[in-house]
Design a protein around this nucleic acid. Structure first.
Lengths: 329, 329
DNA sequence: CTGAAAGCGCTTACAG
DNA sequence: CTGAAAGCGCTTACAG
């Protein structure tokens, strides 16, 4: 390769790396030779030498033994957004789906496979989160989304703002007796934040916030179903529901329909997350969704600043209202 | 590290690689030292030396400028399944989402970042498929799912078998006037295979296959809507529809409902792919889905055998019927 | 602006 | 069973 271009190995390296010190003529000669020989830099050698990998690991946490087909589409979209954002910043992404406690693995930096790790996924896998929390304590560069632990470096949606939007939207649609299906104690910290946003606005409006909660450990759909059954059985009046996530909202919606309660006429309903299935339910489900593109960018930028040891970007991702028929009357 | 264990660098390497030639005592000593010093092999150096990366690149093709949020969930699940299968075979996966024609990139082997590439995604991005087809022609190790080209090394669902299952299921439910919404010319080759399976069984049963087709370039949902409008407007009698994919089926379903045609009572409906949104539609959509776990494994095994230059595993993934209410009367 | 040389951290013949 | 040595293909001070 050096022979083809008639220069030294050092110059080839500098020319290809875009070092401004090489003359334009030389760069062109090297580029031509590289094209002719179909030469490409061996990244392993380059990484060995420089110590940088230009790669980020993306770990997606699933429930143990979860079927990938039933995997939360929100996390898929978030993962896709992270990969796209990393690519825009010229980084590769090493993706893995991890669930089983005995197959957790995150020693990417130690093996020099990546410069840092982004961990996203379900809060419902405590072993996995403990594992990555320990990694972070030992100094790994790590940023996450969905951790039940506050002491990991996290990025989240603007849950309070989004919950206020959802609640305000129900009020604007004329509903007054609004209850919230959520949890104050769920490992999913976002649920509490969303309840707080709802409660905050209700109080400001002189209305009484009411929380309907659910059992841990069931599927989101089942949690939504049971909360709805519970709410109806309690006999307390309600004309709208803000559910802390779309999958719960869809479970709730099915029960309302089965019970002959019409949505949105008798009861308005809105969820949170903006999952696709919400667009196909009957009626289509209103929701609040994070700006996915920004979500990936904030995660990647934050990790890059952690790696560069200048963390500062702010960790909240803006959300937008997604009004559909389930909340319009 | 070698000093800590009291052996040479060579022996450390052999012990950690599990070379059976090292004595058990030595291996234990090395393992203890590694644990104590938190030592891990630098994979870049190992890869530089051996020339193997133990990594597969997974390229997911999107439509240009597609919002990741609207990305086909089937392809997400397939990608997840590929990553999981690779992980079980001790390989890392380097994932990228590629859409824009000017940002296509697949020189993973050339840069020694991966041993081969799995390309999956939408058929509706001809530039992308041309790009990867050229790569394969130049000798890259490449296996794909969804390519419009027959000359790439592909893996697909058992589309003919699945279409027969779907059709047989409609017949078993008592429907007779079954039409098929599909395309013989779509870049999505699977659509033709599914039509063929349907037509094959219809003819065997002495029934007349009838194809309703759709325009290229629209969203799947819109294609389904228009096909349904067209079918109704034609006035020809039908009591069941087999749609060549779920997203089209869901568009069709919406039109049937809007026109006051009850599903499954007046018309039975079944799709293909088993996407999640199908479980949430009203009524829930029957479908045929590939075995996702097997799909990932077949893709990975085929790529590994291409890399090892012993390609042979068979490229069809089994499917199963997913009967739901849209086709039961 | 360019080249000669050192060295990143491994693996693997080769020798013993 | 173990060690000394070579070398994978880069990048980067250092010198000119």
């Amino acid at each position: 390769m050096a022979a083809e271009a008639g220069v030294s190995q050092s110059t080839v390296s500098r020319a290809l790396a875009g070092d401004p010190v090489v003359s334009e003529a030389t760069r062109a000669r090297v580029a031509a030779a590289a094209a002719k020989l179909n030469y490409h830099v061996d990244e392993n050698a380059a990484r060995l030498r420089t110590g940088r990998t230009g790669t980020l690991a993306v770990v997606v946490i699933c429930r143990p033994d979860e079927d990938i087909k039933n995997f939360n589409p929100f996390h898929f979209a978030l993962m896709g957004s992270v990969c796209a954002a990393a690519s825009r910043r010229r980084h590769e992404t090493l993706v893995s789906f991890q669930g089983a406690a005995d197959r957790l693995w995150g020693l990417y930096q130690e093996q020099r496979k990546a410069d840092g790790v982004i961990v996203i996924g379900t809060s419902e896998n405590p072993e996995a989160w403990d594992y990555f929390r320990n990694l972070a304590k030992e100094g790994a560069h790590l940023v996450c989304w969905g951790s039940p632990h506050e002491d990991l470096d996290w990025v989240r949606s603007d849950n309070v703002g989004g919950a206020r939007m959802a609640t305000q939207h129900l009020l604007d649609s004329g509903y007054r007796n609004i209850v919230c299906i959520a949890s104050q104690t769920s490992a999913q910290r976002q649920f509490k934040e969303r309840y707080d946003g709802y409660a905050e606005l209700m109080v400001e409006q002189g209305l009484e916030p009411r929380l309907v909660t659910f059992e841990e450990g069931l599927s989101r759909d089942e949690q939504g179903r049971r909360a709805a059954v519970e709410l109806i059985r309690s006999g307390q009046p309600f004309d709208a529901i803000f559910a802390c996530c779309d999958e719960i909202a869809l479970g709730t919606l099915r029960v309302l329909r089965e019970q002959g309660i019409s949505v949105p006429e008798q009861v308005g309903l809105i969820g949170f997350d903006g999952i696709r299935a919400g667009a196909h339910s009957a009626p289509p489900l209103s929701s609040v969704e994070p700006d996915f593109q920004t979500a990936g960018e904030v995660l990647v930028d934050r990790l890059l600043s952690v790696i560069a040891e200048t963390p500062e970007t702010k960790p909240r991702v803006p959300v937008r209202l997604l009004p559909r028929s389930s909340s319009r009357r």
